[in-house]
Amino acid sequence: MSRIAGRFAALAKAGRKALIPYVTAGDPNPDVTVPLMHAMVAAGADLVELGVPFSDPMADGPVIQAACERALKHRVSLRKVLEMVRSFRAQDQDTPVILMGYLNPVEVMGYAAFAQAAKDAGVDGVLTVDLPPEEAGGLLDELKKVAIDPIFLLSPNTSDERVRKIAAVASGFLYYVSFKGVTGANRLDVGAVATKLNAIRKLTDIPVGVGFGIRDAQSAADVSAVADAVVVGSALVKRIADLAEQPANIDASLSEVLTAMRQAMDAQQRAVANR
């Protein structure tokens, strides 16, 4: 069982939902990232999603675009991100790490070289935003060889037929994008998410995480009522942006948000269990 599947199985057994924070690697500088990953785990993160900076993050809103720009000022390449994961793994062998990014840096490294380097560094899952399954054959083959989970997006307009097609090649978990738009927008509709997740669950047994639009403890708890995992990105990255000049305060600030989300999510699950 992969580290991601193992983590979801353990959470299900414990009656808890996964909290998955996203930060852009190297934002606001490369020294911040690894300690921040550990701090987020200590604050209640079950998996960590690390953004690979890209010059043209088409699917992201202004908050994560700006994070990419801050990281790229330090030339944080895919190889540097893998070094960060390796460094994180030296102290934490349990928490799954997912890379989220765009295809071109992977293309430049080469699929086979990337898959092997990611495996060696301790990466568990790879989400390539601009790589739908139709184009993913070559990378999927290489990830499979090294047993890294390919994570794919689902969205409100993904048909049942496509959900089946995507679930057939995905593993670890599926990432449901809660609305049509870019990261960081404020358009979350938990009722609509619940309806679509019910439909998705009829088509696949893979755990489903929900991201986009989760900004505080309340929205995290609301989404955790219907999803297997809650992904929170822009709300954290915005705090990093605000503290870019005081990086020493970033760990505490993000831990505060995640702790509140963790508590609200766990309280929500206890309420369900006691009902």
């Binding site: 890209f54 010059s55 043209d56 088409m58 790229l72 030339r75 390449s77 895919l78 190889r79 765009y102 295809l103 071109n104 840096p105 992977v106 293309e107 430049v108 490294m109 601009d130």
Partner: peptide
């Protein structure tokens, strides 16, 4: 340039050694 992926298609691109668009 070299082949890569940008703006929805694979094609020749101006990029650096890390795959960032220049």
């Amino acid at each position: 340039g070299k082949p890569g992926v940008l703006h929805g298609n694979r094609t020749y691109l101006m990029e650096d050694a890390d795959g960032q668009i220049i």
